[in-house]
């Protein structure tokens, strides 16, 4: 049971981080379907830092640099979405999808190239290992493995609430997602606000990415991307009706179902049911479909999301 709690909390943290990232972007008016790709690239940035920093690096510095690496990669990558969708009015769905496919392809090509170079051609896998570096992100309370990303997710939650509802910046950003022309008429720079929204989603998306690959394992095969987790996060965001507090609750629910597939063998009751493991793997996706079907009807989505900003339109 403790194991279930541990996995639920860590997967919820990942979902919360990414969903909150998506929340900023959508409130500014840009649908960020590329979160999946941003997670992969963020994870790549963090994994490369862990791979190349000497093992003697002090733990806290290692953590800090890993996070910086992830965020740097993620923000740069999300700029690709921003420039296409905000400045060139590209279709947000196409560009988001392109970023998802590009993220996995780019990470695979780069990691394979690095592995080949370092091993002199023997290692052609797309896997990065970070066994020792991972220890810096976790602490043990008895048998409970505490992960620092749980704290980061809670901080992100509080920050999101305060920024979106209590600051001038956040309220202005949300105005751009509801009615950009009206926002522009009172002197708000819509382009700047949307850029901020997308770049912030890059920060949180990449943090979620690095948190995900550090969640249960100590090596990652980049060929697999992040297995639809970015989209699960989008489902969490929709279920949470674009509101931080509800997103947190939705993330806990989805995190629980995701965790079940990792730990059901350890729970006698579930193991006795003899359900094949693939069913547990499918669980989060099925649940999210049901949840979406039930909650999308009265969607509280930002009104102007998905529509490129055209200053001449009223």
């Amino acid at each position: 049971m403790l194991l279930l709690l541990q996995y639920t909390l860590i997967f919820s943290s990942v979902l919360m981080l990414v969903a909150l990232g998506g929340c900023y972007s959508e409130h500014s008016g840009v649908i960020n379907l590329g979160l999946e790709g941003i997670m992969v690239i963020g994870a790549l940035g963090g994994a490369l830092v862990m791979r190349f920093l000497p093992a003697s690096t002090p733990g806290s510095l290692m953590v800090l640099l890993t996070l910086c690496g992830a965020v740097l990669f993620g923000v740069l990558y999300s700029a690709l979405l921003a420039v296409a969708c905000i400045n060139y009015k590209a279709d947000q769905t196409i560009v988001g999808t392109a970023l998802n496919i590009l993220g996995t392809a780019l990470a695979t090509v780069l990691v394979k190239a690095i592995n080949m170079k370092l091993s002199g051609g023997d290692d052609v896998s797309s896997t990065i290992q970070y066994v020792s570096a991972k220890q810096n992100f976790v602490a043990y309370f008895g048998s409970f493995q505490f992960n620092w990303f749980m704290v980061i997710a809670i901080i992100a939650l509080v920050v999101a609430y305060v920024v979106l509802y209590k600051t001038r910046f956040g309220l202005r950003m949300m105005a751009c997602g509801e009615h950009p022309q009206a926002a522009a008429s009172v002197g708000i720079n819509v382009y700047k606000m949307r850029w901020s929204g997308v770049l912030i989603s890059g920060i949180f998306g990449s943090l979620g990415g690095i948190a995900y690959i550090l969640a249960g394992v100590s090596e990652w095969k980049f060929e697999n991307g992040v297995a639809g987790f970015g989209f699960l996060a989008l489902a969490v965001m929709i279920f949470g009706q674009w509101k931080p507090a509800r997103i947190a609750l939705a993330a806990l629910l989805f995190g629980l179902f995701r965790a079940l597939s990792n730990v059901y063998i350890g729970i006698d009751f579930l193991a006795n049911l003899n359900i094949p493991s693939t069913v547990y793997n499918m669980f989060p996706y099925i649940i999210s479909l049901i949840v979406l079907a039930l909650t999308s009807k009265n969607s509280k989505a930002p009104k102007a999301e998905g529509i490129p900003y055209d200053p001449g339109q009223r």
Binding site: A227, L234, L292, S296
Partner: peptide, 15 residues
């Protein structure tokens, strides 16, 4: 149910 077809599509891909 007004579910975004991209998200339900992705979920069904994995299922």
């Amino acid at each position: 149910c007004n579910v975004n077809e991209v998200i339900s599509g992705i979920m069904l891909n994995w299922i």
